[in-house]
Computed example of a mutant assay.
Amino acid sequence: MVKLSVLGSGSRGNALVLSCETGALIVDMGFSRRELRNRMASLGLDPGRLRAALLTHEHDDHSKGCRVFCDELGIPLCTAASTADYLRRRGKLPGRVLEFEPGHDFQIAGFEISPFAVQHDAVCPVGFVIRHGSCSVGIATDLGDVNALVKQRLRDCSALILESNYDAKMLRDSDRQLYLKRRILGRHGHLDNVVAAEVIGELLTARTSVLMLAHLSGECNDPGLVRALFERRLAELDRNDLRFEILSQEHPVGPVELEDESPAQEVFAYAAN
């Protein structure tokens, strides 16, 4: 069985934990070491079970605690090679690193990791599909567009964590500077509610039991508006049977149990640099 726990999601910090019988991994560490530990403790998670950390991209709300947290636990940071170079030049890279390229799968901590490229204004941003046996978790928290590759990777996951960052009208009416609005609205920015709601029709299958909406803007979105929009959409798709969560910055969620009928064995562990 796989357990999914979200420590928080938003513009001030993102992190989630996946655990199975052989260990656990953390995806993104956008909080301080102390805050990561506190949030794990609030969900009854033991940091000592973590075997690796994954990083989607270098922005601070995803990478803030990665160096100190990984070094303290002695676990490797798995990140795209160009992202590692960026963090290394800024003294933000932990001592143990496993570099990967999008499109190249690898195994660690009892999980099979499939990183794939997404469109976002970062050095080498990625989403992940993380598998253990028959269970798969799709993660895409920062992306300006859901292209054919993203649809292919995220379709038919047991659990889907997808960005629903902003309401277009709230963003346009906000006091944010024009360049920032254009950045967010662009294909390398963030995903708006309507696009996210529309695309789930292509991503959800009978196998999908959990849908979590991530990275809601604190200024240009409204959880109530998002909930109403997606509940209507899920009703249209006749998918009121799945677990639906709107993730927040302040409140951790989980552990959520995902059934795994045929657990995979860890084939090998990487020797981190």
Rank of each mutant, 00 (worst) to 15 (best):
N14T: 02
C66R: 09
V126C: 14
L258W: 04
R232G: 05
A109N: 06
S9F: 03
H215R: 06
I75Y: 10
D60P: 03
E58V: 14
H57C: 11
D260F: 00
H132G: 07
G13R: 10
V123K: 09
C124H: 06
R89S: 09
R131T: 13
S134G: 08
T56I: 05
E21S: 15
V199L: 14
L160E: 09
F230I: 09
E21Q: 15
A214C: 06
D60Q: 04
P94C: 09
C157E: 09
P47D: 07
G201M: 06
N147S: 06
L143N: 15
A214K: 04
G10R: 05
F268Q: 13
R49K: 12
Y270I: 10
M29D: 02
G23E: 06
I161Y: 03
D61T: 07
G10M: 07
L16T: 06
G218V: 09
C66A: 14
S63V: 04
S134W: 00
C70L: 01
L213K: 08
R34C: 02
V137R: 01
D175S: 10
G10V: 01
G144F: 07
D156V: 08
L216V: 01
R153Y: 15
D46R: 03
N38F: 08
L180M: 11
E259C: 14
L178W: 11
V129N: 03
P223F: 07
L204A: 13
S5E: 03
L45M: 09
V267L: 13
C135N: 10
R131S: 13
H59C: 10
A269N: 15
L73W: 08
V97Y: 03
R227N: 11
G65F: 12
A80W: 03
V129M: 08
E236K: 05
E72G: 03
P47F: 04
V27M: 15
E112P: 01
G127A: 04
R239Y: 12
C70A: 05
P125R: 02
D260I: 00
A117N: 01
